[in-house]
Amino acid sequence: MSASAIPLTVLTLFWIIVGCVLPFVIPKGPNRGLLQVVLMLTAACCWLFWLCCYLAQMNPLIGPKLSSRTLMLMAKQWGNGIDDLN
């Protein structure tokens, strides 16, 4: 399984718009700078969180569940000498 280019591109463009375009659309006011920083940080954090979750699916940490018979066959084949796995 490999990463698809379409979701990566679409979501990256979405968060670029939120973080780079929307801060310039904020109307003038006393908190304009704060709102711009909030939008940029929100976009960066949300994009990074999404990217980590998306890429974590490429190499999951949870392995397959093997039956006792399969484990015993593997142990016999590898020469570990396990008599019984229950």
Rank of each mutant, 00 (worst) to 15 (best):
M1Y: 07
M1F: 07
S2E: 13
S2Y: 09
A3Q: 09
S4K: 14
S4R: 14
I6T: 11
T9E: 05
T9Q: 04
L11G: 08
T12M: 12
T12Q: 08
L13D: 11
W15R: 01
W15K: 02
I17K: 04
V18N: 01
G19Q: 12
C20T: 12
C20I: 09
V21H: 04
V21K: 03
L22N: 03
L22R: 05
P23N: 11
P23L: 11
F24H: 12
F24K: 11
V25Y: 06
P27M: 03
P27K: 05
P27N: 03
K28N: 04
G29C: 01
G29S: 01
G29P: 00
G29Q: 01
R32H: 00
G33N: 06
G33F: 03
L34C: 01
L34A: 04
Q36I: 03
Q36G: 15
V38Y: 07
M40Q: 12
L41V: 11
L41S: 07
A43R: 00
A43E: 00
A44E: 02
A44K: 02
C45Y: 14
C45Q: 13
C46G: 04
W47D: 07
W47I: 00
W47H: 15
W47Q: 15
L48K: 08
W50M: 05
W50A: 10
W50H: 09
L51K: 11
L51H: 11
C53D: 14
Y54E: 04
Y54Q: 01
L55F: 11
A56R: 12
A56H: 12
A56T: 10
A56D: 14
A56Q: 13
Q57D: 13
Q57F: 08
Q57L: 12
M58G: 02
P60L: 11
L61M: 13
L61T: 14
I62L: 14
P64C: 03
P64H: 10
K65F: 07
L66G: 00
S67R: 09
S67M: 06
S68H: 15
S68L: 05
S68R: 15
S68C: 12
R69N: 13
T70Y: 04
L71G: 05
M72F: 01
L73D: 13
L73C: 07
K76V: 00
K76E: 10
Q77M: 06
W78H: 04
W78L: 09
G79F: 02
G79C: 01
D83S: 11
D84R: 14
L85M: 14
